[in-house]
Design a binder for these strands. Structure first.
Lengths: 321, 321
DNA sequence: TTGTAGGCGTTATCAA
DNA sequence: TTGATAACGCCTACAA
């Protein structure tokens, strides 16, 4: 028989005789034949692969997103290749180029910078979905209402009786860090308090920097009595420094942090957190992508932005005795 | 000029006139040309890509391995596609097939089962490195001296004054779980204690199962006064159940767990842990792979097994007041 | 329903 | 030093 018949059989086309098809399949199984995905993709001008480019594989928030993306991809018949940029713009650029060279049919990206250059991809018609962080270029985006979540958390601190909440947020270049700071400030205004720059620190989303920031704040002239912290990594640093000073969270000091990391329920006191719907974000990003892959450029929808709400989970650390 | 000249230029071959080469590069830049990686790989019969197939992306141990692998790969000019099997043998089989179809030049795998079928890959001459868990098939492996680490941890509990250490380990099918249980038993023997089956539980490496196991043990006729726990995920479950009972770790109960997860230093008391050299394991796996990719089958070294030591880090949770 | 043949974008061989 | 050309393995229009 001919290669065409084999190809048709293996692609489950109707136009092949059942008996013949069976013989093909039997032979394929016998010989352990696997088709060459490279050749197939080259011919088809598309690979059934998505690139998921995330900025920190060690962060449970991003791994939860990855799981969401993966589940959608699997359901729709795509493989996901996961790339980790470690917050390094150079690595990000490299992986974007790899995605292009490998002709992936879609990219989901948590950009390191709002200006990350995806123009090559879009020019080629490869759909891109931004996740967690916005992109200047107009593409589908799945974001979180960070400011609202930060505001709710900070207001909760004040309503629980704390009088001077400080804010430890991420780097000044990160949109999420800026938004969380904005939310913190809005909460102070809403509760008739004067936002003080001396109560704010940018600690690059890292634990050790957060510990240092905490020490600075506590050693200041008018130290805070509570903390709103913009991610769980930094919360570890804050906890460490407070313990070093013999201060108990939920007792001597109030604390709320972003991200419902698995361990947050197990510290002493259990951490009050602003939970982000990370898994759902991944699912949504995948679904937005699905609606674009294989769709001609002139029939594509306008860029869509989905903003998901956070959920404040009150545990012990934010309450006053 | 011809495509051949362009190809030679872009591959930095010497045999092309400098002026011409400059014109090629200028034109390429102008047009935003990117070579098609698929076509290249098809022609070359190899893709400069490794598949890293891990069993749980949410586990910091595996993400640390991934970073190690990535760093080596980057250094050597390979991309890494990361695949997450979620401990699901079906997903693992699917990703192994994808790796084969995409003609990756190497695979690093933490197998779900010792019997995972990699014969297709090896038959095609694609080198495979097993990491964290052994494979029945004889391939390069990077393992940890789990039993020794478990024994050291358990002996440390006893030496600290605890009299009845229990063991909460992983599923009976997992080699790592079996080895850690073995180490626990050896410690008891070495310290002249009778290992009792009633003090051992298999909790599938999951927090909720570990919490249940802890409850069972504590409600038993002769409850333990301390715990050796085979991973950090389960340690969270143990901590939760102990707190529910008003018991303080490092005070009323002793606790040592495998894995130096980022949060373990921040619980109350800080957790004593058996640290695994996860990042180094990734690096080593990558280096073993490097020595095989591109090497003809008949010149390949015999399968090598590297066993790395653990390190006991004593913090507060394992000490008696 | 089946077979033939062209081409996807590269790289490598050979001749010029 | 350069160019023409034949693969790599696959899918598909077209012919039979």
């Amino acid at each position: 028989m001919s290669v065409a018949t084999v190809s048709r059989t293996l692609n489950n086309q109707e136009t092949v005789d059942a008996d013949l098809a069976d013989r093909v399949r039997a032979a394929a199984a016998e010989l352990g034949y696997r088709r060459n995905g490279l050749a197939r993709s080259l011919r088809l001008q598309r690979a059934d692969v998505w690139a998921l480019i995330i900025s920190d594989i060690a962060n449970p928030f991003f791994t939860a997103i990855a799981r969401g993306v993966e589940d959608v991809a699997q359901r729709e018949g795509f493989s996901v290749v996961l790339c980790n940029t470690d917050e390094d713009p150079a690595k990000e650029a490299q992986y974007l180029e790899v995605a292009e060279q490998e002709q992936v049919s879609g990219v989901i990206l948590s950009p390191n910078e709002i200006g990350s250059d995806i123009s090559q991809l879009t020019r080629l018609g490869v759909p891109v979905v931004a996740v967690d962080r916005p992109l200047r270029e107009r593409v589908d985006s799945v974001l979180v209402r960070s400011a609202a979540g930060a505001q709710e958390a900070t207001e909760h601190l004040i309503d629980a009786g704390w009088r001077r909440p400080a804010c430890i947020t991420g780097p000044e270049t990160a949109q999420t860090a800026i938004q969380r700071l904005t939310g913190y400030r809005r909460a102070l205004v809403a509760r008739k308090k004067r936002p003080a720059a001396s109560l704010v620190r940018h600690a690059d989303y890292r634990a050790d920097r957060a510990a240092t920031a905490t020490a600075e704040l506590m050693d200041g002239r008018n130290p805070p009595d509570s903390f709103f912290v913009a991610n769980s990594e930094m919360a570890l640093g804050v906890l460490q420094e407070l313990r070093r000073r013999g201060l108990r969270v939920g007792e001597d000091v109030g604390l709320v942090a972003f991200d419902n990391a698995p361990w947050t329920a197990f510290t002493d006191r259990p951490l009050s957190v602003v939970a982000q719907p990370a898994y759902e974000m991944g699912v949504l990003a995948g679904e937005l992508l699905i609606e674009r892959v294989g769709v001609p450029l002139d029939q594509q929808p306008a860029p869509r932005v989905r903003r998901l709400p956070t959920e404040l989970i009150v545990r012990g650390s934010s309450l006053r005795p």
